[in-house]
Simulated assay, not measured.
Amino acid sequence: MNGFERRAQQIKNRIKETALKMLASCSPKQIRIADIAGEAGVSQVTIYNYFGSKEALIREVFRDYVQSTVDEFESVVRANVSLKEKIEYIVLQKKNNTHTLHPSVLAELVQEDPEIQELVRKNYEERSLPLMAELVGKAKANGEISEGISVETVILYLNMLYDSSARMLESTQNSEDLDKLVEEMVHVFFYGICGPKSQN
């Protein structure tokens, strides 16, 4: 990559980072190219030259977001750590992602754009689902999940945990409360609300 290409890529990345930051708190419909250009310190023409339209820019930002999220999940699934640590990551990832793209923004993007719908479907079927199956398979092999529980049931439970954790974690402000809540959610995942059976 020569100097011109490197500068062009830096500008493009700055535009995408600006759009992603705006999507953390604004509906895509509320964001204007002029707003992105002003925040990124570029002209509107530059944005159109690189991306063609606001919709194309948002699609590329969303594609990068999904890719990085799944890449991070893959690294956790394949890490040499316990299932408990992996579940803690899944819970906390939802909180971290909420600060990047708000759930209402994610829902709007998926509902309104068929290309984004297809991107989400393809990523889930081709990457996320196999990774979750791999996570469960490894945990079963290590004796961390009962052999009597199917992979499908564990994945369903993980999805429920992931989807509901955002609402609880969003209202948690200080780190001590957050640590306690995550610890309790992981405990419920493994033992239910009654806790482990006492060892007599």
Rank of each mutant, 00 (worst) to 15 (best):
2 N>Q: 04
4 F>A: 12
4 F>R: 09
5 E>S: 09
7 R>W: 07
8 A>H: 05
13 N>V: 04
13 N>K: 10
13 N>I: 01
14 R>I: 04
15 I>C: 01
16 K>F: 03
16 K>W: 03
17 E>D: 11
18 T>Q: 01
21 K>F: 10
23 L>H: 00
26 C>V: 00
30 Q>V: 08
31 I>R: 03
32 R>L: 14
32 R>W: 11
33 I>W: 02
33 I>D: 02
35 D>A: 10
36 I>M: 04
36 I>D: 01
37 A>G: 06
38 G>L: 11
39 E>H: 09
39 E>Y: 07
41 G>E: 06
41 G>F: 06
46 T>R: 07
47 I>W: 04
48 Y>G: 02
50 Y>C: 11
52 G>R: 02
52 G>T: 06
52 G>E: 06
52 G>S: 06
53 S>R: 11
54 K>E: 09
58 I>M: 09
58 I>E: 01
59 R>E: 12
60 E>Q: 15
61 V>D: 03
63 R>A: 13
65 Y>F: 12
66 V>N: 04
66 V>K: 01
67 Q>V: 11
68 S>I: 12
68 S>R: 14
70 V>L: 06
71 D>K: 12
73 F>N: 00
73 F>W: 09
74 E>S: 06
76 V>I: 12
79 A>Y: 02
84 K>E: 15
89 Y>L: 00
91 V>R: 05
93 Q>F: 09
94 K>Q: 15
96 N>A: 14
97 N>Q: 15
99 H>L: 13
106 L>M: 10
107 A>I: 09
108 E>H: 07
108 E>I: 04
109 L>G: 04
109 L>C: 08
110 V>T: 02
110 V>I: 13
114 P>Y: 11
116 I>V: 14
118 E>L: 07
121 R>L: 07
122 K>C: 09
122 K>R: 15
124 Y>E: 03
125 E>I: 08
131 L>Q: 05
133 A>T: 09
138 K>F: 10
138 K>Y: 08
142 N>G: 07
143 G>T: 01
143 G>R: 00
143 G>L: 01
144 E>W: 03
147 E>L: 11
148 G>F: 12
149 I>D: 02
152 E>W: 07
152 E>F: 05
153 T>L: 15
155 I>R: 05
155 I>V: 13
155 I>L: 06
160 M>A: 14
160 M>G: 13
164 S>Y: 14
166 A>G: 08
167 R>S: 14
169 L>A: 13
170 E>S: 10
173 Q>A: 13
174 N>R: 07
174 N>T: 09
176 E>C: 10
178 L>V: 02
178 L>S: 02
178 L>K: 01
187 H>Q: 10
188 V>N: 11
190 F>N: 10
190 F>A: 08
193 I>V: 10
194 C>D: 12
197 K>G: 11
197 K>F: 09
197 K>S: 14
